[in-house]
């Protein structure tokens, strides 16, 4: 059995017992031919490559293309495939739409289910006990902590992704974005807006005269 010297970044002074054991397990699985180093490296590379920019492109298209928006809400997997995203077969994808009347917030109370195919890895807070515990029982307080004060009249729907479906929020298109290109619009779509803890950004600068105070 040869030890693996190809990964100097694995040297961490603060690694825990569990960290070392993961690396030991990787080495043993390679030595026994259960997996290859290339396969593991390939999955690492792909997971590093996935970012919320993918979800943002899907949202921006939905904002500008009503027919696509309809298809996205009806069958998100097929619509994402249309956009060139092949979702894993392990879980289905459902997109829920925020409107002037309804706001959606996504959580996974049992673990940390998340639409990684379109958003990459979830933020640490999404996996935290505080978020998993509080998002279902005091969602409005949680949203306030994120800086989003929901109007009292807004109907709030919390989605607990408990099983084989991953949820993505289609945030509201911000005012003052008429005529913007899909690329520019995608720049306004944040990860947090697709989880439902925030709204999409508003455009900065002179384009948006809509919120000016007089």
């Amino acid at each position: 059995m040869s030890s693996d010297h190809r990964h100097p970044p694995l040297l961490h002074a603060d690694r825990s017992v569990r960290a070392t054991r993961v690396l030991a397990i990787r080495q043993l699985l390679i030595d026994k031919g259960v997996v290859t180093a290339a396969e593991v490296d390939d999955v690492v590379a792909r997971s590093r490559a996935r970012t919320p920019a993918d979800g943002a492109k899907v949202v921006a298209r939905a904002w500008t293309d009503d027919a696509f928006r309809g298809r996205l809400l009806a069958d998100a997997r097929a619509a994402a495939r249309e956009q060139g995203y092949r979702l894993s077969h392990d879980a289905d994808l459902v997109v829920v739409e925020n409107t002037a009347e309804v706001h959606h917030l996504i959580v996974c109370t049992l673990c940390s289910c998340y639409p990684t195919s379109l958003l990459g890895q979830p933020p640490d807070w999404y996996k935290s006990f505080a978020y998993r515990q509080r998002a279902v029982i005091e969602p409005r307080a949680v949203l306030r902590e994120f800086g989003l004060e929901l109007p009292a009249a807004m109907h709030l729907r919390v989605v607990d992704s408990t099983a084989d479906v991953r949820y993505l929020v289609l945030p509201r298109r911000p005012p003052g974005t008429e005529g913007m290109s899909q690329d520019d619009l995608a720049g306004l779509v944040t990860r947090d807006s697709m989880i439902g803890v925030a709204e999409a950004h508003r455009p900065e600068g002179g384009r948006c005269a809509c919120r000016g105070t007089s």
């Binding site: 990964h7 970044p9 694995l10 961490h12 690694r15 960290a19 070392t20 993961v22 690396l23 397990i25 990787r26 699985l29 997996v35 396969e39 593991v40 490296d41 999955v43 690492v44 997971s47 590093r48 890895q121």
Partner: peptide
């Protein structure tokens, strides 16, 4: 950390 990517990837593989 790298080991976290490895843990994630091992499960995938």
């Amino acid at each position: 950390a790298d080991w976290e990517y490895v843990a994630n990837a091992l499960v995938g593989v």
